[in-house]
Structures are given as structure tokens and as C-alpha cells.
Design a protein around this nucleic acid. Sequence first.
RNA 1: GCACCCGUAGCUCAGCUGGAUAGAGCGCUUGCCUCCGGAGCAAGAGGUCACAGGUUCGAAUCCUGUCGGGUGCACCA
Length: 578
Amino acid sequence: MGELGLKRPAEPDMQEFIERIRRAIALETGLAQDEVKVEHPRDSSLGDFAFPCFPLAKKLRKAPPAIAQDLVAGLAIEEVSAEAAGPYVNFRIDRAALARSVLERIEAEGARYGGSDEGAGKTVVIDMSSPNIAKPMHVGHLRSTIIGAALQRLHESLGYRTVAINHIGDWGSQFGKLVTAVRRWGDTVELESEPIRSLLALYVRYHEEEESDPTLAEEASLAFQELESGEEGEVRSIWRHLTELSLEEFDKIYGRLGVTFDYVRGEAFYEPYLDQTVERIRASGITEESQGALIVSLEEVGDNMPPCLLRKTDGTTLYATRDLAALFHRWDEFAFDRALYVVGSEQRLHFRQLKAVLTRMGLEWEPRIQHVDFGMLRLPEGKLSTRKGQVIFLDELLDKAVAEARRIIAEKNPDLGEADEVAEQVGVGAVVFHDLKKERVKDVVFEWKEVLSFEGETGPYVQYSHARMASILRKAAERAPDPAARVDYALLEEAAPLLIRMGRFPQVVRSAAEEGEPSTISQYLLELCRELNSWYVQNKVLGEDLSLTASRLALVRGAKIVISNGLRFLGVAAPEEM
RNA sequence: GCACCCGUAGCUCAGCUGGAUAGAGCGCUUGCCUCCGGAGCAAGAGGUCACAGGUUCGAAUCCUGUCGGGUGCACCA
């Protein structure tokens, strides 16, 4: 501890209060300390933490309410009071001690609050975003990108070394088609100024004309063969150019979303490793020939799991082969402690198969691989389909959200400086928060009305709560400083539920990273802001009583830090004004 | 056909991994700006937690089955 600059204040943090309670209960009941489950009461007015006595009833042959009574009589915990309430023992941290421990820790850690050093020395590799070259990024690509980026930031804050890899789709027979289309009609479109839209138009045209012109398919097939041969000819140079054009376009969106990668490695990158990958698996003795193809049978690993194909009848490799090559390459290079694949849940079977292959190979690091899957996004009229024109392009979505934010600023806060910059933060924030709000696995139907809503459980609501706190702090700074103003933590009694929630933040961060579930953070922020806003309307911060003002300002500063840290994890900006 | 995921208020979702009276937002009804930002706050109406069994002192949560929706299943990625 402390080696990474994360100094803990001398005060106990909230976890320490919980440990004190559990230790005392363990001592009194004879339970092992990790058997003692402390939870939050239904109603925060009952207490801060609760211990249900039911499990002890059988062992002690006593009714739970009686156990609770006896337990309370025997407990003496520093700065924590206990009270029996029916079958529960409710615990209340001393108000001043609670406020001091939570606020001083937040103050001390600042932007690092929520993090820890538990991941120090460990590496997590995150496979994320992975758009296809020559196709526009649409709303469907958003989820992998921002879930991955959130997990990247969460793990970083926990001290992990993170390696974010954008596994772009830059290989496959469709590139033969694309090169052919560019050669034939490339000069008819605005390839340089509107590269991706143009490529999409070429792709569509190719498919239309292929039906009446069989020479196209032939040319495309030859082009892909040339590409695969590694020959540095015209085909490869066109392919390379297309890749560069696409990446430039993608970078614009990544920039707006605040997403960065450590490596951009397409499938092409792993091409040279395919043969050795197949050899590596074959050497472990689990491959077999079946119907002319090279496969790994997986029936015994999972119920009825279909086999994994490594080589087709014609000797060429498949998607699974390339993914295995990428996996081995990453293992060899990073020796990761975790490898997260942020990929849609339609690929569940694929990843179960990859893991099953590793299991059959007897590789003990198989459990480190986790498919962070997410539900499918569809439009009200059905599935996304680029070819059918049923798509919403990501840049258009962001533009529309920003325009809406700009409109609302003009309406509600016309004097705001930097309005365009703030509109970008609020608009993009609304889109990102909306997508990270729900549990990953749930499918989402894209509704403009909901994405462009800035009220209720939305990103702008959280940003607004933050901006209000910032506003109070600005006003406070304008006042003449008074040396007599002393923080008195005992004056924050009514804010106890809020403080408990703020103190829980580090656990929320850890759980979000562990589960690969950014929505944990979003939900936490919504609850925190609801509680904070409720407190805010009832308790005036800047008042006559100097000590009260100073104490409440400390709370406001702490709340602002927590919100801002939480939003940062999600990739949502926290403007000071909006 | 087989496998995996999902089913909670009219709609969109939480529910801290088995605990106290199942909570929010949107929409609807009603209040609150001489007061730190009304993108807000407070209140009301709205529930057979898909259904049926089971385990348990206790089930929205775990198990089995049924129904409904989604996704995937040998030479695409």
C-alpha cells in the first residue's frame, strides 16, 4: 500500500467500520468472520448496516428476535451503536465519525477516489470495438466500444496494466470484392472526402452488378488470392489505402468518445501466425480429420457443443483459427491475468468453443478469458442492416444529440460561455450514458426519444447534479474567507445516507470491474444524484452559520468528486457549467 | 431438433448474489422558483415479480418443468 501513491488517511474508511461490526459479531456468536453477512437495511432510517439473526436460530435454538436482543447486549464497537429491531440488529456509525472518515478519504484521494492498488502487477487485455474496415460505424458498434473503454478505465484505476486492442475486421473475401469495385468504379465516388460512405456505395453497387456480370466474382476471387499471397502489388496497396482511410474516419469518432487503444491490430496482423497456431493445437493431440476438415471435437467439454473448425477442406483457415491465433499471440506477449472480449452475445458459442479448445489442450489459463457479452441493438422496425438502409450512423447520432443539447442550452442557459463545447459534452454524454445504463446482457431497442431525453435517469441529469455542486463551490469561493469557519462533521447528521453511499463507491468500482459491468456505475450515480438532489433542496449550503456552511461545503466537494470520478469511468464529461 | 440468454408498474429499467413494507425514470394527476441552477424537488394513482411445482425459518433472487421473446448451431466473420 502507498507504493503507487495511494495513501490511506489515518481515519478508518467505511470498509473498516463494516469490518469492526463483523469482527464483533463473529466474536460474540462464534461464527467465522467471513460467514457474517452484513447488509443494508431496507430503510436507511433504521440504521446504516444490518445483521439478520435468522441463520443463528437453529444453532442457538432460540428465536431470532431474542438472539438479536442478546447480541446487542454483548456488543461494544468503537464508534458504532447497535440496536435490536425484531430479528435484526441494526448498526449506526457515529455521525461525526462517518462524515469524517468518508469525506477525509475523498478529499485525500481526489480524482483517484474509488480506485485502489489491488490490481498492481497484473495485466488485463481488453478486446473491444472491432469495427469492419470500409463500413461505417453505426449504433451497433457503440456498445462494444464504450463498454470496453469503461472497463479499461475501471481496471486502470484499480492499478492493473491495461492493454486495449482494437481487433478490426480487415480481412476476408469481401476485401477482394471491395478492391475490385474500387478498381472499376473508384474514380466515380468521393473516396477521399467521404471515404466510408463512398466505400459503402461501391460495396452495394458490387453486389448489384455481380448478379448480371459473372466476371466480377472471378476478379474478386483473384484479388483476394493475391492479397492472401502477401504479394506487394496493386491489390495490397489498395487494401492498405482503404484501411488507412477507414481508420482515419474511426479515429474521429473515437476522439469524440474519448476512447483510446494501445494496439490497433486487425485480423491481417495475425495472418502470419495461423500455421503455427494450427501446429500448436495439433501438437497437443486433440485435432482430428472430419469430412476433410481439421477439427477439434468438443462434445465432451460441453453438452452437444459443436466442434471447432481449424482448417476447411481446401486447407484455408477460419474465423475461429484467427481468433485462436490472436489469443495465443496475446498470451505469449502479455501473459495476461485477465482477457476480456467485449463482443456481442450472438458470439457466445464461439467464445465457449475457444475456451473449450484451451480446456482440451490442458491450458490452465483458460479461466482468465472472459467473454463480456452484450445484448443486441435493434431498431423499432427490426434488425440493423447496413445494406437495407436500416442503420443509424454513429456520427449522425452524436451530431443529433449535440444539436439537441445546444438547443436546450440556448433555452435554459443562454448566457453560458463555451456553449458549443458544453453541448458536445452533454450530447455525447447523453448517448454514452444511455447505452451504459442497462445491464449488458439485455437487448436494446433504439428509440430516438429516449436517447435524446435529458431528464430523469439520464447522463445530463448526473451532469446537471455535478454542475450544481460546482456552482455552489464557485459562489463559496467568491465569499470572503473566514478563518473562524471550522468543519464540524457532527453537523452533517441528516446527510448520513448520502455519506454511506459515497463511502460505498470503491466497492462499486471494484464490482463493476470484476463483473465487467459498467452499468453498476451508472446505476450508482443515478442513486447518488437522487439522494444528493433531495438533500440539496432541503439543506441550504451557503448560510449564516460559518461552521455549518464549512461542513456542508465539505460534503458538496466530496459529492462533486465522486460524481466526476464516476462519470469519468463511463467516459462521460463532467462540465462545471451547463 | 439441440444449446445459450431474457421475462419485475402502461412503457424503459433497478433490486447490493436468499432477508424487513419489491424501488426508480418516462407517461398521467397534483403541489413547489422574493431562497446556493426547476436539465430539479415533493406527493398521488399504477404490481398475481410470465405460469406451475420444489428447496428453505425466509424466494423476484436457487432447482425442475411449462409458456412467451431473442440469439446461435462444419467449412461466413
